[in-house]
Simulated assay, not measured.
Amino acid sequence: MKKFHGTGVALVTPFNADGSVDYDGLKNLINYQINGQVEYLVSLGTTGEASTLNKEEKKKIWAYTAEINNGRVPLVAGLGGNNTAELVAEIKAFENNGYDAILSASPYYNKPTQEGIYQHYKAVSEASALPVILYNVPGRTASNMTAATTCRLATDFENIIAIKEASANFDQFNEILRDKPADFLLISGDDPAALPMIALGAVGVISVIGNALPQKFSDMIRLCLKGDYTTAAPLHLNLVELTRMIFAEGNPAGVKAALKQLGVCGDAVRLPLVSVSTELETQIIEQVKSLN
């Protein structure tokens, strides 16, 4: 699964001012990422505001993303939910032409036990014709998938190939790396943690800031994967402030403000999200200017 080493970008979904999907903006964004030399793209993850899209919109976005990508980089589709039966049906119906894997977040709101999480992903694995990337993000789901559950899933299901880990728990990262099967991939789910996680043994990151700065960020990640932390560290530290800013008032409002400044797409988001404040937007614009 070398195709998932390096920088994957969790694409935003551009919207027009009236709230409709901006397909021209999405085309610009996809080409901007590929020209920025990222390794792969993730369509309709959390950053893509998938929770505010209906089924027909998701289907159209997935198909359009595959069409514009045209096989240039690997594609991952975000398919998650807290109703296991409904999610299994969605996965079985997914038209996966052009896609290389699915990314599926641990069930949110229900707060299942570890056995519940295991059984949920067992059903996902058995339903999916594509490799599955687990996604642990306790800050959004209100439950943590432990290292033991992650490694149990990795051992029991051949098509569960990786985890996007966004727990910010380095003890947990260490346990996964110690106990996982040799070919199972640990991927950072937090931009600021990517460098130290790669130093431990992670194979890359699924990034938010990569939407705005694909070349700079993916260059830094490639240096880390080569073991050149002396060169990578200053680049990492140079991006710390913008990374902080783009999450200060929620994701993806912050990174969309940066993309608007860069002329890639607009900054509209769907309720219940709102655009960043004028004050933060000004700060993001100045920071983007200083990095270009």
Rank of each mutant, 00 (worst) to 15 (best):
N292M: 11
N238S: 12
T231G: 03
P272N: 09
E95P: 08
P214D: 05
M220E: 15
N110T: 13
D191Q: 02
G227P: 00
N174C: 02
F247Y: 01
V205Y: 03
H236A: 01
I284E: 00
D183R: 07
L186F: 09
P214W: 09
A89E: 15
T155E: 10
F4R: 07
N174F: 13
D156G: 01
E67K: 08
N69V: 13
D228E: 02
I133P: 12
Q172Y: 01
E175H: 02
E158M: 05
Q119P: 04
D24H: 13
N136A: 14
V264Q: 00
A253C: 07
G78A: 08
G6D: 06
V21D: 06
T155L: 13
T47I: 07
E49R: 11
A85C: 15
E249C: 05
L130K: 01
G48I: 03
N174A: 15
N31C: 01
T149G: 11
P234A: 11
A101P: 14
L273D: 02
A50T: 05
S106N: 02
P272I: 04
I30C: 07
E165R: 07
V274P: 08
V208R: 07
V203E: 07
G81W: 09
V9T: 15
I284P: 10
N251H: 00
G250A: 03
G98C: 11
Q261K: 03
P107E: 09
L291Y: 04
K226R: 07
P272L: 08
I102K: 10
A194D: 14
N83L: 07
T13C: 12
Y109N: 11
D156V: 00
M220A: 03
G78K: 13
A148K: 15
K27H: 01
P234N: 12
E57S: 06
H5E: 15
V274M: 11
P181M: 00
P214L: 09
T282C: 04
Y108D: 04
E279H: 12
L53T: 10
T278L: 00
L134P: 05
G201W: 10
S290R: 12
P107L: 01
G71Q: 03
Y118T: 02
L213R: 08
D190R: 06
R152T: 01
V21Y: 02
S167R: 05
K3Y: 02
I285T: 15
A233I: 14
Q114S: 03
G210Q: 11
C224F: 15
Y40D: 02
I221F: 04
G98I: 01
D24M: 05
P192F: 06
Y118G: 11
T13S: 13
Y135E: 11
G81A: 12
E126H: 08
G201Q: 07
I68A: 09
R178T: 15
F94W: 04
A127T: 09
S275T: 09
V9G: 02
V124G: 13
L262E: 10
A123H: 13
G204Q: 06
G254R: 05
R152A: 05
L273N: 11
E86C: 02
E57M: 04
S277V: 12
V205M: 08
K60N: 12
V21Q: 12
R178F: 08
A193Y: 10
S188F: 03
E95G: 10
F217T: 07
Q172N: 02
A105N: 13
L130I: 03
L26E: 04
K55W: 09
T65D: 03
